[in-house]
Nucleic acid binder design. Structure first.
Lengths: 212, 212
DNA sequence: GTCTATAAGCTGATAGAC
DNA sequence: GTCTATCAGCTTATAGAC
């Protein structure tokens, strides 16, 4: 029974700290975030945070890395064989769901990009650019196959990113304007429907009508 | 000749400091920005910055106020009499131009909202909500008049904000992915055209073809 | 109004007892 | 591994000479 699960308590603290750090870094950025605030949010003494992550920079990198890994899992395989309307609709709905359910991750990413992506410039070049290139090639494939009208694939991807992430990054503004306290499932559904239908129609595809 | 332009040198410094502060606050947020960095960027001793703005918080508020005033000037009067396609196209192109030409202001605003809008919650309620309500009413007016198909006016406004501001806030990501160093007029034109055409088509309007 | 010098307080990081 | 005490350096802000 001894040492049966040696890494568990450690992992538990690691996760707690990472979550607290994600929130603080998302709100205040790397320079603005305070180690004390992260420790308080995690319910641990500040020295404990330093014990696990050595310093502020390593903690920030760990959080960023954690987010990027999670996000990559969402990037599923779409091929030229798929139906563009279905594929784009699925992608848009996934992104909206992510924005509603994990807004902090999106906000931290946004913060990093706004600051000029000092810690992600390599990631942009090495991971995101190839990812966009590949999706763009698939979309071009659809256009060449006559499955959809001609459009700019890269600008289309930017538009999907912008409209979906907006609900995570600008949550405070949206809630304020809509006179609401929180997001709910119904709003998420309405937004998904509106964004998907408007973009698909906008590029000349017939919108998908899910579960009807 | 004496005291003919008493406020000039003062105003000049005020503007210089505000511009420097806008850049630093946009990149690092309120907590993350350093008064020394703002002073350096403005080419003045730090004490001078304190002389004009007393403290960091007042400077931040002055910058925010400055931006909001500038932005309000761009919010022109559109009425139910106008053609929806022309009005929306004009609005979209104005916003894209603003994103390409004054990205820092947009980024600072984004930063403030991401942080939960601690200094703008009143502005959101008192200024932006009424503004959105009024535009929404005009759009509803167009729909009722049979000038355009039914759509959600508020979600439409959010979509326009999201897609246009995206090019200011996420400039680093877009340049990185497009393998560019800077924005230029041509890209701005392409983006304007794509966003305007896609959104107008998306909500069932016939896109405007400018100067052709 | 400008600018150097410095005070007062905050923040990241660590030492060292438990 | 945990946590209190504390240090060294940084940051805001001001005092006071010019």
């Amino acid at each position: 029974m001894k040492k049966a699960e040696p890494a568990r308590p450690r992992d538990k603290h690691l996760v707690t700290i990472l979550m607290a750090a994600e929130e603080e870094f998302a709100r205040h950025g790397l320079k603005g975030a305070r180690m004390q605030a992260i420790a308080d949010r995690a319910g641990l003494p500040k020295a404990n945070v330093h014990y696990y992550f050595r310093n502020k920079n390593r903690l920030y990198l760990a959080v960023l890395n954690n987010i990027m890994t999670t996000w990559n899992d969402f990037f599923r395989g779409v091929t030229v064989e798929d139906d563009p309307a279905v594929a784009l609709d699925t992608f848009i709905r996934q992104k909206v769901r992510l924005s509603f359910q994990q807004p902090t991750a999106s906000r931290l990413f946004a913060n990093e990009i706004i600051q000029g992506a000092p810690y992600l410039s390599e990631y942009l070049r090495e991971v995101m650019r190839p990812w966009v290139d590949e999706r763009a090639r698939i979309i071009t494939g659809w256009i060449d196959a006559g499955k959809m009208p001609a459009t700019d694939p890269v600008l289309l991807i930017f538009m999907i990113w912008a409209t979906t992430q907006h609900y995570a990054d600008f949550q405070a503004q949206i809630l304020g304007i809509m006179d609401r306290d929180t997001y709910d499932e119904q709003l998420m559904e309405e937004v998904s429907e509106f964004v998907s239908a408007t973009i698909l129609t906008g590029i000349g595809l017939t919108p998908v009508r899910p579960d009807r």
